[in-house]
Every structure is written in structure tokens, then in C-alpha cells.
Design a protein around this nucleic acid. Structure first.
Lengths: 358, 358
DNA sequence: GTTAGCACTCAAAAAGATGGAGTGCTAACA
DNA sequence: TGTTAGCACTCCATCTTTTTGAGTGCTAAC
């Protein structure tokens, strides 16, 4: 027992799952008897279903109902699908690259219209949600190298300085500094020199208390200003810890009755609203990298409590140098895994390209 | 008929509404008979209720049910309340300034912890939602004066310039400009001079095609760079058109059964998720300014279709010079108007103060 | 090993029964 | 004339019962 599934059982299991994905209702033996090409009577199917139930691949909501896939069943189905996809990919069977016109069109729109990363990501999230009818989330690429590239103080008014800090990856931070008394051009020049010689090329982690003390000492009377600049530097780095997450389509869950009772829906949507918890999910994704870069979490496998009744599919896109971001889809366990995986793959590739160009 | 309400009717109406606000269930004549201090039998109350129904202040969900307030009834109640609040305020009856400890504590937390406007506003929204148990929204102040204060080009790398544009209100925009070929320090200096002499002190609207042409001509070979800087300027202004809206607590509606059926909840939350439509609401608010700066929209009065079954309370905070932002609460029609109005008032005052200091 | 047949189960839908909160109206009362 | 007690009536909400039908598990025959 439990020595794997023979050909027939696999076919039946697959048929059950696919039917369930479509209808969302428990599927009975007669349905399968008609559905499948192997010509078997419902009675035979029943016997096999009984076995599959015992093995834990499917379950009965109650005695006299049809069967629904268990988490183990889904897992089997998804693994099969992924394996097949990889095989196809290996032999360059690019029938898989069937265009998703909606997402394709997206690409152009996005590149054209949005000059700002923020808007672009929001747009992508929206599109993905619309395309799949599930909830989507996406993070901006996480820059893990915070090396400082450029620092500059300029005079705004007699009592106001503007500090600009640029880090690698062209992330920019501004800080306005109010002075107690005017400062000469010369002083500003000196401070600029000081800041650049000390900080330029450093990573965030390399700025320690000793260094700060040195800097302040050098600055003498103007150590206040230094403190403010360092503050800006600090902010630039802090953003790292909580990468921004863009979401869309959380309300799509109302399309799936098994998720839309008040209690569940409320928790689910709150999770999306707060976004905080989503970070955990994505952290996990980032951690273990797979061949395709696509991960599927089914039911309890997700790290987030409130999504126990859902499945989560994520993909990691790269800019190279280990700078990565994540796209994800959250939907009911009976989601259209194939479509979701394809969509994410397409999008991941597009993002990879896009960033490579930019 | 319809010549206003006598004292007794007013008392009864108020009692009905208040009871309904608490319970959320239709209220019957006996309840009122016990509740109120004017000693009347339920029969008498019934007669009065019948009148009030005819006048349109209250309604019956069905023949043999109690009464619930109609929009007109709510309107009456809110108007009364606001009038009283204003009266209190006029004679400096500051018992009204009863502290809301939660919001008070907020103030300090906020000022302490958040250096970034964005985070602060998000925090405020979250707090307000938590305090009231309704959904909250808040916009960043909308700067309507876009006068340019400072422009600077700096070299980042040999083929990269950094443009910094600062507008009044200390809004800052950065733009990185890629060059085709290196640029001498001297050229950068000249371009800086050029940009500042032409653009400094101008409002967005004053930058027209003629001016741009002049600038580009002056810049000669480097007109590309000018175009990029103007792009940054453009962005600085564009942000105006769609002020960022921060929201929180959309899922609070699930606490109110009359709003939490799938259909309604879905639409409601989607509105909050997209935020786009909320802008309309806030635009409206900004338009007509009242004495207290607090507005209440009941049911159909709201400009947003999906909120027909809700009430919306908004407040406008000011930085002076007509620079304003909005805070708002969306909840069921039977919301605790008094508490909401007080909370918004408190918050509005705090924001006014805070920005005055900053 | 497969299948037809049949008794049995159980959830969901439909139909019926009960109770109670609340009204509107009438007639009596101060 | 305004107020009140009394009563018949309405209608929703709740609970119970009935019906229906999809689906199973088992047995016996092929």
C-alpha cells in the first residue's frame, strides 16, 4: 500500500481535480465515468475513489457526497503539472508560450506610460489581478547593496540646507535641514567635502558609531548638520527592511463562495490592507529558490495563518546581482494553477527583461 | 402640516434615532415609552410615530416592525447635533474637549516616530480607523502653489546627472539624467545658472511652450538635459492632480451586518482598494467649506455610488495659504456621529498645529 | 476484475407551524 | 381634545418537518 498510484488511479485523480477546479463542487463517480476516456462504469470508479480516499488524495465532505481534493491531492496535481511544464520547457516546446494577450498588451502600456516605478508596480498588480481573478501582490526589487554614491549639501535659503543622498541603484533621499544661524558658502563646501570623503562608497552597515563620532568632531560647530545628513542616510537604508508591497484584487475572493463568509473574507482582506504580514510570506519565498523560480504553497503550507484555506503562487524576478523582487497570487485552493503559473512566468520574464533594459 | 416639529416630536425622534444607533434594530413604541423621560404611554408614542413617519423622518422596514430613521431623520439629528456643538464652542464650553486618550497618545507617537509624511499619514489613518471602528481615509495636503524655489544639476558619474527641483512647501523631486557624452563642470554650472534664472520663482502654470523653447535655445546642444529637468518639474506638479490617499480599516464594515453582505462589502472595499474614486469624494469636500470645516454626508448625499448605504464625515485641515488636506470617515448610516465628529475635530486641530510648527 | 442493482445516507431545499414584537384602530376616560 | 387601554391583525424570524436527489457502499452476477 501507499506504493504510488498506478496509471488508472492517476488518471482518475487528475480528472477529479480538474473537474473540481472547474465546478467547485464535490465530484461524484458518475461524472468521472462519463468524463474520462478510459471506459469504466461508475461502480469501478467508486472502488478506485475509495482507494484514493484511503490514500489521502481526496476526501468526502460528508458520507453521501462526492469527493474533493485534499491538500495532498492538490500537491500531487501541481507537482505533476510543474514537472510537465519543465519538461516542455526543456525540449523548448514553446507551445507553452501561448500568448496571454491581456498581459502582453500590459507590457507595452506599462513601459510607455509609467515613468515611476511605483506606478508601474501598482499597474502590474492590477493587471495580474484582473487577468487571473485572484488577489495579487508584488514587491519592488529589494536592493541589498546600499553603497553610498553621492552626497551633497546645498543652500536653499539662508537658514535652510538641502541634503541629497544617492545610493547605488539610484535610490535618492532628500532631507531639509534647518539651521540656527547662517552658514557661509565656504563652510558648506567644507562639509560637502567632509561627508563625501568619509561616507562615499560605504555600505550602510559600515557606518558605525566610531565613524560618526569622527565625522562630528571634524565638523565641529556644525555637527548638527552632520547628524541630519546621517539621518537621511539612515532612512535610505531603513526602507530596505520593509520593502513596499503593492496589491490588487483582494476583493476577488468574493467570487469564491468557500472564502467569502464574513469572518474569512474580513481577515483575508485585512491582511492585504495591512500588507505587513504579506512581507513574511514574501520573505519565505525569497529564501528558497527553485529551478523555475516559481513556488506554490497549498493550504497549510503558506506561512500566513489567515490564508490557510488558500493557495499562494509566487515568482521571483531578478535584476541580477541578487537584487530581487517577488510577484504573487493568492486565491482559493481550487485555483487555476496552470493559468496562474503561466501568467506569473510571463510576467516574471517581462520584468526581468524590462529591468535589464532600464 | 410639515411646519416643523414640536418639542415632543423632537424628543421622540431623537430617542428613536439614538436607540437605533445603539442597537441597530428597528425600535418600537414601547421601547421609547420606557426610554424617554416624558411619561407617555406606548399608544401615544405610536400616534406620534405615525406622524413622524408621514413626515418622512422615520420609516418602517415592513408593516409590523418598529421604525428606523430615514435619511431625512438622520439629517435632522446631525444638524441638531452640529448646531449644539457650535453653540457649545461659541460659549467656550470646553467640556467638549474631553480627551480622546487614544488619539492623544497618537499625537506624540506620531510626531516622535515618523519623519516621513507618508508614514505619518498612514499611521493617522490607521489610528482613526481603530478609534472609531469605521473606515478612514486621509489625503496629504494639496499644495496649490507650485512655485519653484530651487533647481540644481549635479554630476553623479561622468555620464549621469542628478537634477533636484524644490518647490514651495519643500516638496522635492529628483530625476536622474543619462548623458550621451561627458559634460564639463563648466557646462553644468552654466546650465544651472540658466535653469535658475529662467525658472526660479515661477509657478507651474507659468511654464509655457514659449519659455521652454527659449530655454532650449539657450542651452543649445544640451537641450536634452533641459527637457529632462522640465520633466521632473512636470512630475512635481502632476502629483497635485491625484493627491495620494491613505486609507485604513475598510474591513471594519464587516462589523455592521447591514453592510456586510458579499455584494455590498465587495464594492465598498474595492472602492477603498482602488482609491481612485475616493478622490471624487474628497474633491467635493474641498469645494464647499463650512464654518467648522466638518461635513457630513448621509446616504444618497455622498458623491460615490458604492456608498449609498453609508454616511461619510469629512474634515479639512489647513496649513494656511489655502494649502489643505482632508480626513474622512466612512461608516454605516447609523454611525456614532458625535464621536466621529469629535475625533475628526481633534485630529484636524492636531494636524493644523503640527503643520504650523513644521 | 468489472459491472448492474439496490438499499441507505445525508445535505440542501421546500413547505409548514409557532411565537412574538409591533402596529393600527376603536372606544373609553380625564 | 388629548391620552390611554385593549384587541385584532400583520409579518418576520425561527424551528420543525418533509421532500428531493445526488452519491455512496455493498452484494451478487457476469
Amino acid at each position: 500500500m501507499e506504493q504510488g498510484l498506478d496509471e488508472r488511479k492517476r488518471k482518475i485523480l487528475k480528472a477529479i481535480i480538474q473537474t473540481y477546479l472547474e465546478t467547485g463542487e464535490p465530484v461524484g463517480s458518475r461524472t468521472i465515468a462519463k468524463y474520462t476516456d478510459l471506459n469504466l462504469s461508475s461502480a469501478t470508479i467508486r472502488n478506485e475513489m475509495s482507494d484514493l480516499t484511503e490514500m489521502g488524495y481526496i476526501a468526502q465532505p460528508h458520507t453521501s457526497a462526492g469527493r474533493i481534493p485534499s491538500d495532498k491531492g492538490y500537491r500531487y496535481y501541481v507537482d505533476e503539472m510543474m514537472a510537465e511544464k519543465n519538461a516542455q520547457l526543456a525540449r523548448k516546446d514553446l507551445a507553452l508560450a501561448e500568448k496571454d494577450s491581456q498581459l502582453d498588451e500590459a507590457r507595452e502600456l506599462i513601459i510607455e506610460k509609467t515613468d515611476k516605478m511605483e506606478k508601474m508596480l501598482q499597474q502590474v498588480a492590477r493587471l495580474l489581478a484582473k487577468d487571473t481573478n485572484y488577489a495579487s501582490l508584488i514587491t519592488a526589487p529589494r536592493y541589498n547593496s546600499g553603497r553610498i554614491k553621492f552626497i551633497q549639501l546645498s543652500r536653499l535659503h539662508s537658514l535652510q540646507l538641502l541634503a541629497v543622498v544617492v545610493a547605488e541603484g539610484n535610490r535618492i533621499k532628500n532631507e531639509i535641514i534647518d539651521l540656527d544661524e547662517p552658514m557661509t558658502d565656504d563652510t558648506i563646501f567644507k562639509l560637502n567635502f567632509l561627508l563625501n570623503t568619509y561616507l562615499n562608497g560605504l555600505e550602510a552597515s559600515e557606518i558605525n558609531l566610531g565613524l560618526i563620532a569622527q565625522l562630528k568632531e571634524q565638523a565641529g560647530v556644525h555637527s548638527e548638520v552632520i547628524a541630519n545628513v546621517l539621518n537621511a542616510v539612515g532612512n535610505l537604508i531603513q526602507v530596505e527592511d520593509e520593502p513596499k508591497i503593492y496589491t490588487s484584487g483582494a476583493t476577488n475572493i468574493f467570487k469564491y463562495p468557500e472564502l467569502s463568509d464574513s469572518q474569512k473574507a474580513s481577515e483575508f482582506i485585512a491582511t492585504f490592507e495591512e500588507k505587513q504580514q504579506l512581507a513574511d510570506l514574501l520573505k519565505e519565498t525569497m529564501a528558497d529558490e527553485e529551478n523555475t523560480g516559481i513556488q506554490v504553497y497549498i493550504g497549510d503550507e503558506t506561512p500566513i495563518q489567515t490564508m490557510k484555506d488558500c493557495s499562494v503562487v509566487t515568482a521571483t524576478y531578478e535584476l541580477g546581482d541578487g537584487i530581487r523582487g517577488t510577484i504573487g497570487i493568492v486565491g482559493p485552493k481550487r485555483m487555476d494553477y496552470e493559468h496562474v503559473v503561466d501568467s506569473l512566468k510571463t510576467l516574471k520574464d517581462q520584468l526581468d527583461d524590462m529591468f535589464k533594459k532600464a
